[in-house]
């Protein structure tokens, strides 16, 4: 990317917008702001930002509606800001195409990291064959997973699950999404499969499966590979 990446903030709280602006501008982003859903949609269309930070609680229309309208034409990163840990809300937004989420109050460091990873997701694409994360390498072309250079023995289901998580590195994938993609639509509610296989994968991938560094649990929402 040659010019500064543009970020659009859609949030009705002036204090949050100010805080975000100071931090994002300081990190070299070009910051645009909108205080309502309607304004946000207009500015998204006129500025074509690289990423949008969208608050779910807007005065004029719900953040979900803004997201739905955005996703009709906007395919770049959308990161959700939500006031409290309302998992239903977050899962809904992620299933409707949000790339990631943060709950207020959030830590600025975390926000910047999530934003970076969401914008990176714009550039990469599903074509990437080799995904690296620390000591792990997932080679989608050869269907191989290596840990510190050694090939790991994974079952077919473990591999499908890991490949899906890895090709969405940095993104939260919801329980329902993972179950649907790996096991099939009729397994969407069978979260016990997911728990068991994630535990198995962690035993093979992680140094300490109880303190996972690669497959991170997002309580009540899903999993994230990093």
């Amino acid at each position: 990317m040659t010019s500064k990446p543009t970020v659009l903030i859609i949030d009705d709280e002036p204090q949050i917008r100010k805080l975000l602006e100071i931090n994002l501008a300081g990190k070299g982003y070009l910051v645009k702001q909108a205080a309502s859903g309607k304004e946000g949609l207009q500015m998204a269309a006129s500025h074509l930002p690289d990423a949008i930070l969208l608050d779910l609680g807007l005065p004029d229309m719900s953040g979900h509606e803004v997201l739905r309208k955005l996703r009709e034409w906007y395919s770049r990163a959308v990161v959700i800001l939500s006031v409290q840990n309302n998992e239903n809300d977050i899962v809904r937004a992620l299933d409707n195409g949000a790339n990631d989420y943060l709950t207020k109050p959030f830590r600025v460091g975390e926000l910047l990291a999530r934003l970076r990873s969401a914008i990176r997701y714009n550039d990469t694409n599903a074509n990437t064959q080799l995904i690296e994360a620390g000591d792990l390498e997932v080679d989608l072309g050869a269907r191989l997973v290596m840990r510190s250079g050694d090939v790991l023995k994974l079952t077919a289901t473990e591999y499908s699950l890991l490949a899906l998580l890895a090709s969405n590195k940095g993104r939260v994938l919801t329980h329902q999404f993972l179950l649907r993609e790996v096991w099939g639509v009729s397994f969407q509610a069978e979260t016990q499969y997911l728990r068991v296989f994630i535990a198995q994968l962690r035993k093979k991938l992680e140094d300490d499966p109880n303190r996972p560094r690669h497959i991170i649990t997002e309580s009540g929402v899903g999993y994230r590979f990093q």
Binding site: T155, A156, T157, E158, Q192, Y193, V196, F197, A199, Q200
Partner: peptide, 11 residues
């Protein structure tokens, strides 16, 4: 409780 184990994942 669920005792589901990953052995079910046959190779």
């Amino acid at each position: 409780t669920s005792y589901l184990k990953s052995e079910k994942d046959d190779e």
